[in-house]
């Protein structure tokens, strides 16, 4: 069976959920081989994790020469690995960075690339992807017809299923050219962890917009009662109430949780683009005409400053 390369999504060796989703998808297409860009001393721990989701191999690419530069070195390393491994497909978790890696890799390998797939199935002549486009109003199925299919897959596109793989660790040493090191990261400030789930991976997202009036406490309180991530509209971000990392929408993050709760958010097309594929959508808005109500499974017409604290209390009561 041919190999399917899966680029591991991790923070300092801490493997993230999209990795398991991609390994699950990769098993439909061939034999998953995880690609870990990171510190070699974390390799065994990573292998332990990814083999439980079927990784037959774990290629370890020491990122000492890679992480200080934007995108280009990673694409170079993947090209060299792909030329050696001759995979039948390369899957990457969709993020701005990985999409750029995928784009560069496509040119290097002379291959087609598909971004932001929400599903991938085997098909005649290669994988068939599903994309959700035009702010979620259309569903498009596509495939790569040239070279090695390179596909970036959005978080929450598959339920991770365990399956034991060999998880054989193999070091891969890439040669990074000087040309690829043209854009240097000169400083990096990690964002403080909030203790809440990651926005793009969370099963539940509770968001606030301009209707919060700048007071996010009711939104955060309700999120915490549900164990949810917190999101924001651009209006809330532009007003300086929340950092940009929380923004949901076309120019922020795309989320596809089981449950999305929009509070004081009108439902502009650019916001919808980031949340319309959520399984269940709930809104609290004081305007019964707000367009967000066209999307919802359940809506409350009311003041979020009254509804959310009361709902938070009730949820906490139920949990005992």
């Amino acid at each position: 069976m041919s190999e399917v390369l899966v680029v591991v999504d991790h923070a300092d060796g801490e493997v993230k959920k999209p990795t398991y989703e991609l390994l699950t998808i990769a098993r439909r297409l061939g034999e998953p081989a995880a690609v870990f860009f990171g510190s070699p001393d974390k390799a065994d721990a990573v292998a332990e994790k990814v083999k439980r989701y079927g990784a037959a191999k774990v290629y370890v690419v020491d990122d000492a020469q890679i992480k200080g530069f934007l995108v280009a070195p990673k694409a170079e390393a993947l090209q060299q690995l792909a030329e050696q491994a001759q995979p039948s497909a390369v899957l990457l978790p969709s993020s701005y960075e990985n999409k750029e890696v995928a784009g560069r890799l496509a040119i290097k390998l002379g291959s087609g690339v598909i971004t932001d797939a929400v599903d991938v199935e085997p098909g005649e002549g290669g994988p068939v992807t599903t994309q959700s486009v035009f702010a979620g109003n259309y569903t498009v199925r596509a495939k790569v017809t040239q070279g090695t299919p390179i596909i970036t897959v959005k978080p929450n596109s598959a339920a991770p299923e365990e399956a034991e793989g060999a998880g054989t660790v193999e070091a891969f040493s890439a040669t990074i050219s000087d040309a690829a090191r043209g854009a240097q990261v000169v400083a990096s400030q990690p964002r403080q962890s909030t203790g809440r789930p990651e926005l793009t991976e969370a099963a539940i997202v509770v968001s606030g917009g301009r209707g919060t009036g700048g007071d996010f406490a009711p939104v955060e309180g309700f999120a915490d009662s549900l164990g949810a991530a917190v999101g924001a509209s651009r209006a809330a971000v532009d007003s300086g109430w929340m950092p940009h990392a929380y923004q949901v929408g076309q120019t922020g993050k795309t989320v596809s949780p089981q449950l999305y709760v929009a509070n004081g958010i009108s439902g502009a097309i650019q916001h919808r683009a980031g949340m319309q594929t959520s399984k269940t959508i709930v809104a609290v808005n004081k305007d019964p005409e707000a367009p967000i109500f066209e999307l919802v499974d359940f809506g409350v017409v009311g003041d979020l400053h009254a509804v959310l604290p009361a709902a938070t209390e009730k949820v906490n009561e139920r949990k005992g």
């Binding site: 959700s132 259309y138 498009v140 199925r141 019964p288 109500f293 359940f298 809506g299």
Partner: peptide, 20 residues
């Protein structure tokens, strides 16, 4: 190098329950 097989308009979401 990529080919779209089909494109389907997303079925409109069924109207949800709205309470005041």
């Amino acid at each position: 190098w990529t080919q779209v097989e089909d494109a389907a308009a997303r079925p409109p979401r069924t109207a949800g329950e709205i309470v005041t």
